[in-house]
Structure formats: structure tokens, C-alpha cells
Design a protein around this nucleic acid. Structure first.
Lengths: 404, 404
DNA sequence: TAGACTTTGCCCGATCGCCGAACAAAGCAT
DNA sequence: ATGCTTTGTTCGGCGATCGGGCAAAGTCTA
């Protein structure tokens, strides 16, 4: 074979991902402004690699559409002083809905993610979609009509988190174990028909994971959100995006086998993480000891009171969670693990056990820079979802020509 | 608050990922032609959603650059007969290098992925990068000079798989446990200086995983490649792309704890999967029973001979692997699990154990459509890497104006 | 205090990739 | 033979971007 070496197509951009190389996606500019990462046109140009002229064009469009305001001038850095840009928080509103097994939180946010108004009600998800969503609809209308704010606001989008697997592309729950009657219910259409805006539905842990990653741990590309409450679940952010897996059931770690104990589980197997460390299981065992504990919140209460049995139990639950997590850390190699859910309210005790198990068993290379931290966003995570979705699902700005 | 509902920005493209919506990336056209998914211009236009004129432009550029040939006419489907396009397999060559702990395979492929020439040599990776890569360089030169083929071929790229973690963006190994002396060694530069073409380096399981996903399981977006040999590792394909994790150590599942046995492991812990089900551990235990077994290949031999102890042991190893895998299936929810590595040569026995454990313990929703299958590509996977990298890292075609 | 320099932002022409319509080519149907 | 269908090409236009030039508005220096 007569071989020639090709002319050098060598270049050093061994890019990590097939993401658009310099120009990035539309919405990128808005994300930079809203996150405060770049607040002047020149700064945006430097960060994105776009030409200054292009940035001006895009920013003008954002201003024309009312998404961005041009503020006063910023201090000069040696030349002409830049004009500062900021997200126009008034004028628009976004609804965030967090539906849990037994509660329902509805929030109204501005497009910066700040909570304008919120309401929480007890609610049984087993009452079915019509009842639950009807309640959400009424609550949302109430919030829209009664919330403070002199400026008129336009509802732009609705984000909903539900406690079960969701086929994200259609927004329909698929065989959700604790949501009887919701299988394949068209939640997006429900809201889109009634409010005329896009509605996005997702699993609650996915929502929380994304919210933590976008709003609190934005330096992190690979993150796990562990929810330790009545049950145990996990949201996965891989390369900055939610990993849902083939059937959308990824992150269902509650029934991974752990340790030697053969605790029977409602799933039919035994030794499941949830049966050993879930809030329901812990409450069961505390009751066997003669203590009053109906659910996760009672456990938190007992731990806060310093009850030794409860503390020991939570700590041991942490170790069980940590043992499973140590495997997942080896497998997935995240940068950050965020622990949330009802039991994270006592994260001193819970995380001690988790860290102990993870650092004992995981690959040192993987744990070297690993952070295991309590949720920074807390209960508002579910409602904050839209603010994080915003940056992943770009708004439709600057497409049409002239707005007004 | 005076609320107006915004005008309907409703549209039904609730896209799953922020991938370029219809037009796809450059290189897409080439991928369609080379995979045989679309072999005429009109077909490409229909598949990609591009305008027919655009397709023509791109195809012309590919032809001009010599990547594609225009064949004879295809039978008419009722109108003007289409002209069939095919990948120009001659003229170009790609090198695939699979470096293992104790062997080294070098292959020469055409850009369609067909093996033109190959050579395998025993080799100790602990001899260090200069010795090993020097050998690869000589082998590759030999192959380039002596291989058959009347047409002259231009070497376009080199792909290398190594048995340890690699920081993919720089192509440097990072703290590889079984590759002493390789830490931070600049492998890409070694090849790029000597052959003048781009060289990509990756972990061997990543390479195998991507090769299986692209070449054998192209209907699958989420895939795990389990390598069961002397050690145990895992390559992760999430959403069609390799997941490397924060430090590039994702997939290191050999030291996940499994079962009740406290087998000590070389990592310092005990009960690790590798210490229970790895080829080295199995060989140790077979020797304790008085059998001759130095490594994985001997185990395969014994199983093939029908040795009951070896069969029992491999099957049990499969169960241990399956127990870990069941957790990973719950967590990651893959569509396909491919089992490769030396022990996969007896996959009848190994997979029986794996499937048994997975189907017993994993979430039925996740296992419902899960496939657990032996490697389809086998030992050539490492060398086939370049063919799969090709479609993920687009070639630089049709940029300049006129080639020749 | 007056220029020189720096930085920012805008304007304008050029380019690039793509689309859509019109058109030519080449077979099939009646 | 005539029309229909399918394929592929040509051509004009559009939208996004780039890059240069230039005005604006500061700071720095003599």
C-alpha cells in the first residue's frame, strides 16, 4: 500500500462535546444577563465569543421584547463606560408547581426566579388528576389575581414537578407507583388549554436536581440530587442535562439492595434501600420501640429533640444511603451530591452517615473533589424549577422582527 | 396584580434535548451515507429535513473532497431514478490501537470501518509509554507499508484505547492504576508529531462502549458496556455520548461492594466486585482447588472443557456482576447492556447469572425492554473505535471552497 | 487643560449556510 | 405521444454573523 500522510488537519480543539463551538445557542445571551455572569454588551461578547455587533443585535432584540432593561451606566474601566444590562423582572411571571404525595405548592416567580407569591396546601395525590390539577388551577388563578405588584404581569410558562416517572417529551406520567389514576394523563394540555402558555412536566427529583445545579451549584456539570424522605429517589444531572434513561425511570434508587439486612419492602423484594433507610421504614421501626412517629416529619422532630434512638436510626440510615451512593459515585463520578428531602432537615446526622460510607468505600480519585452537601434551595426547589428550565429551554425571543 | 395571559407561544416541540432541531450537524450527511441509512440525495433530504438544494450542496462537497462516490443509478420508484451514493472506502485509512494490560492490537481500517490489516502482539504496559508507543509506531508503519491494496491511501486519524482513566480533552492518562509511568503522558502529541494526523485517546471501555453503540446497537441511546476480564469495568453511553464524569473515572465499578462475602481486594477494601467476580480472583480460587488457572483465558478454557467448578464459579461471578448491575440499571435505566471482556467468551454461563440477578432485583419498568447481550463486535471493538468516533467527531469536510 | 489613548457601542457591507421556487432530467402511466 | 412523478440542479433571497470603520465617552499624561 502506498501511503501518504494527509495534510495536517490538526487542530487543538479536542472538544469535549458536540456543542456549538463558539457561538452557543440563542438564549445564551439572556442566560448570561440573568445569571449576572455578564452584564454589559462588551462582557457578553468576550464571554460568548460573538462579535460585538452580533451581541448588540441580540441585546437590542431582548430589550425590544421586554426581557432586558438597560440601566444606568456602570463605572468606566479606562474607556467609555459600559451600559449595564439587567433582567426585566417585572412584566412577566412564571408559575412553579410542586406536587407531592400529600401536599401541593404553587408559586409565582418573576423570570429571575424570585418568588412573588406562593401557597401550600395539603392534598392527596391519590385523588386523581382532575381533583388535584383543578385545585392547582384555582390556586394559580387566586395567586395571579391577588398577589401584590403594581405592574401588570404576563404569565409566560408553567413548570410542574410530580412524584413519579414522567415521559418528558409528552409530559405524561408513566406507571407512577404512588399516583393512581395519573398514568398517561395529559398534564401539559390541561394547563395549556386553561392558561394558554407552555407547560413543562417532570419528575420532582429531576426538577430539584436541575434547580440545584442551575441555581446553586452552577460550577458543577455532573450532579446527583438525593431525595431522602418517605421514599428515596435520585435526580441525575449529567453534563448539565437531566438524564432520564430509556423509560424515564432513571434515578429510581430506592430499591437497590443494601447491606445484610433482609427488611421486606413494599416492592416485593427485600433489603431495599427504601425499606432500610426510607422515612416510612424508620417511622415503622420507631413505633415498634414505642415512640410516636407517623412519618418523616415526626422523625425530624424526634431527632431535634435529641432522642437517641431516632438519632442513631437516622445516622444508620445515612450509612445505608451512603453505601448505595458509594457505588453510584464510582459508577457516575459526579462532582456534587446534593441531599434533600424531608430527612435532610436533620442533615447533620444524615450526612455524617452518608459521608462516612462514601469516603470509606468509593474510589479516592472520584471522592477527591466530591462534595456531599445539603440542599441549598430547600423546599422552594420544586417551585424554582421554571427558572432553571428557562436556561435549558430557551425562551422564544428575538425571532419576529419588531414587537411594538 | 393585573394579569394578562401572553399570546400563545405554544408549540408542540417539547424537544428532549437542546440538539439542533432539524438541520442537524455537519457530518450528519456523511454519517447517513456511510451507515447506509440514506443512499440518495432525496432520501437524505427526507431524513434530515434539509432542503434538497442544501443536500445537493453538501453531497457535492463530500464528493469533491473524495469522501463519497456517486455510483450507478438506482431503480426508479416511479419518477426520475435516483443516483446512489456510497462511502469512498479507498483512498483513506484510519488507525485503531487497542492497548491492553498485556497485549497490543493495531488495526488499519477504511473510513467505513472495515478492517484492512491488523496485528496483535504481547506487550507489557508497565514497560512505560516510550517502549509501548514505540512498538505501536513501528507496527503501524509496518502495516501502512506492507498491507495489501492497490490504491494509495492517506492516513486520516488515529484512535487509541488504553486500560485506565484518561482526561479526554487532553488525551492524557490520569493516575492509571495498572499503567505505571503513564500518568499525564502526552499520547496524542506522540502520534500527531510522528504521523501528522489527529489522534484521539480514550479509556478502553469507553471505546468499546461507543463502538458497540454506534456500530452494533445504533437503535440505542443509553447503553452500558460491561467488561468482565481480569478486572471489571464499565463504559457508559448516555444520550448517545460517552459519560466520563467529573474526573474521567466514571464506570469504575470494579470496587463496588457486593454480597456478603468479605473477600479482600487489592484496593484495600473488601467485598469488591472485582475481588469476587474478576478473572484474577476466579483464577486464584480455582488454583486453591488444585486446578491450573493463571488468568482469564484459562478459566474460559476450563469452562469450555466442561469443568464443573469453573462453570459454577463463572455462573456465580455472573450473579455477583448482575447484583451490582441491577442497581446500576435502576439508577441509569439503560436500554442495552453489552457484556464483553475475556470472560464474555463463555457468555452462556456468565450472562445466565447476570440476567438472573438483574431480573430478580431491578425495577420491572426498567427491565421491561432491557436487553442484556454479549458483545457483537468482540475483540475488534478497540480497533473499530475510529469508525465510531468518526460519527461523533465530524470530519472537516466542505469547509473550504474548491479542493482540486 | 488639551491631546492621546482606551473602551464601549453602533452602523454598514460582505459572507455563509440555508431555504424555496423554478426548472431540467429521466423514468413510468395511460 | 402526452402527462405525471420523482430526482437533482440552478438561482435569488433571507437571516445570522463577522469584521472594519466610526462615534461616544470616559481615563491618563504632559
Amino acid at each position: 500500500m502506498n501511503v501518504r500522510f494527509s495534510s495536517p488537519p490538526l487542530s487543538s480543539d479536542r472538544g469535549s462535546a458536540p456543542s456549538p463551538p463558539p457561538g452557543q445557542t440563542p438564549g445564551e445571551v439572556l442566560a448570561l444577563i440573568s445569571s449576572g455572569a455578564a452584564v454589559t454588551r462588551a462582557e457578553i461578547a468576550r464571554r460568548t465569543g460573538l462579535a460585538r455587533s452580533t451581541v448588540s443585535l441580540r441585546v437590542d432584540a431582548l430589550i425590544a421584547h421586554g426581557f432586558v432593561d438597560e440601566d444606568t451606566e456602570a463605572p468606566s474601566t479606562g474607556g467609555r463606560p459600559p451600559r449595564r444590562l439587567s433582567l426585566r423582572t417585572h412584566g412577566h411571571a412564571i408559575a412553579g408547581v410542586d406536587i407531592g404525595a400529600s401536599h401541593c405548592r404553587v408559586g409565582l416567580l418573576d423570570i429571575g426566579g424570585a418568588l412573588l407569591a406562593a401557597r401550600e396546601d395539603p392534598l392527596n395525590i391519590a385523588d386523581g388528576p382532575e381533583a388535584v390539577l383543578g385545585h392547582v388551577e384555582r390556586t394559580l388563578h387566586t395567586l395571579l389575581e391577588t398577589a401584590d405588584g403594581t405592574a401588570s404581569r404576563t404569565l409566560r410558562a408553567i413548570g410542574v414537578g410530580v412524584p413519579g416517572p414522567v415521559e418528558f417529551s409528552t409530559g405524561r406520567p408513566v406507571d407512577p407507583p404512588i399516583m393512581p389514576g395519573w398514568h398517561q394523563y395529559p398534564i401539559p394540555e390541561f394547563f395549556e388549554e386553561r392558561f394558554g402558555v407552555r407547560a413543562l412536566i417532570d419528575n420532582d427529583v429531576n426538577v430539584m436536581a436541575l434547580a440545584e445545579q442551575r441555581l446553586a451549584f452552577s460550577d458543577t456539570l455532573h450532579l446527583l440530587y438525593l431525595k431522602v424522605g418517605t421514599g428515596i429517589g435520585c435526580g441525575i444531572v449529567a453534563d448539565g442535562r437531566i438524564h432520564r434513561g430509556a423509560q424515564g425511570s432513571a434515578g429510581d434508587i430506592g430499591h437497590i439492595r443494601v447491606g445484610e439486612r433482609d427488611e421486606p419492602c413494599r416492592c416485593g423484594n427485600s433489603g431495599c434501600l427504601e425499606a432500610i433507610a426510607g422515612g416510612a421504614a424508620l417511622a415503622d421501626r420507631l413505633r415498634e420501640l414505642g415512640l410516636e412517629a407517623a412519618g418523616s416529619l415526626d422523625i425530624v422532630q424526634l431527632v431535634r429533640e435529641g432522642n437517641r434512638e431516632a438519632v442513631r436510626m437516622v445516622r444508620e440510615a445515612g450509612r445505608a444511603v451512603g453505601e448505595v451512593l458509594s457505588g453510584l459515585v464510582n459508577f457516575f463520578n459526579p462532582e456534587t451530591v446534593v441531599v434533600g428531602g424531608a430527612l435532610a432537615a436533620v442533615h447533620d446526622q444524615l450526612l455524617a452517615g452518608v459521608r462516612e460510607a462514601v469516603y470509606r468505600r468509593s474510589n479516592p480519585l472520584a471522592t477527591h473533589v466530591l462534595r456531599i452537601e445539603p440542599s441549598r434551595i430547600g423546599e422552594n426547589g420544586g417551585r424554582s424549577a421554571p427558572a432553571s428550565w428557562r436556561s435549558s429551554t430557551p425562551c422564544p425571543p428575538h425571532r419576529s422582527t419588531a414587537p411594538s
